[in-house]
Simulated scan of single mutants.
Amino acid sequence: MTYKFVDTLTEKQIHQLVELYQKEFWSQRRTYPDVVKMLKHSDIVLGLIDNHEQLIGFTRILTDFVYRATIYDVIINSTYRNQGLGAKLMDAIVHHPKLHQVEQIALYCLPEMMPFYQRWGFTTEVANLNLMYRYHHSHQDK
């Protein structure tokens, strides 16, 4: 299978991304208007498309391009999983030219995904730091 990376999504690919989100427990409430807004305000967008321009993978990054970057929403269409495409997506992120100088890259993942991300040097060894959340109730209660 041939594939390529894109840094913007077509209208059709945005709809495909919403479909991908709606199949995952962590993102199933995402809507088209919110995803459009999210894409507009993400610093780096990386889509993985096949030779028919179908979206098969996606991730996005929020960053200041110097000190911090956070990777969000690493997702591969379930039909294409276990073929190494998630690894190709991660390779493209950690070697992205705009992230080359960033001091620290972070991501959130489920415990079972930790071994996958450790291949790129991600670690849970973060000294005495704790992750804290403040939830906006309108998104939490939808």
Rank of each mutant, 00 (worst) to 15 (best):
M113L: 08
M90H: 12
C109W: 01
L85Q: 03
H95R: 03
A106T: 12
M114Q: 14
A92Y: 04
G121N: 15
V102R: 10
Y108Q: 14
I105G: 11
L85G: 08
E112W: 01
C109S: 12
H96D: 00
M90E: 08
E112Q: 07
H95I: 01
Q83M: 11
P111C: 14
K98P: 02
H95N: 04
K88M: 04
P115H: 12
L107S: 04
H95T: 02
Y108W: 08
P115M: 14
M114T: 14
L99M: 12
Q83D: 03
F116A: 11
A92N: 01
L99V: 06
C109N: 08
L107G: 05
Y117S: 08
A106S: 14
G86K: 03
E103R: 15
L89R: 02
H96E: 07
G84T: 04
I93P: 04
P97W: 01
I93K: 06
Q118R: 14
G84A: 05
A106M: 12
Q118C: 10
K88V: 00
I93H: 00
C109Y: 01
D91H: 11
L107P: 08
Q104R: 11
G121M: 15
G121Q: 15
I105V: 14
A87C: 04
E112L: 06
E112T: 01
C109V: 10
G121W: 14
Q83P: 05
I93E: 01
Y108D: 10
A87W: 01
V94P: 05
H100K: 14
A87Q: 03
L85D: 04
Q104P: 03
A92S: 02
A87S: 10
M114C: 13
C109G: 10
Q83E: 08
H96P: 07
H100V: 09
L89A: 07
W120T: 13
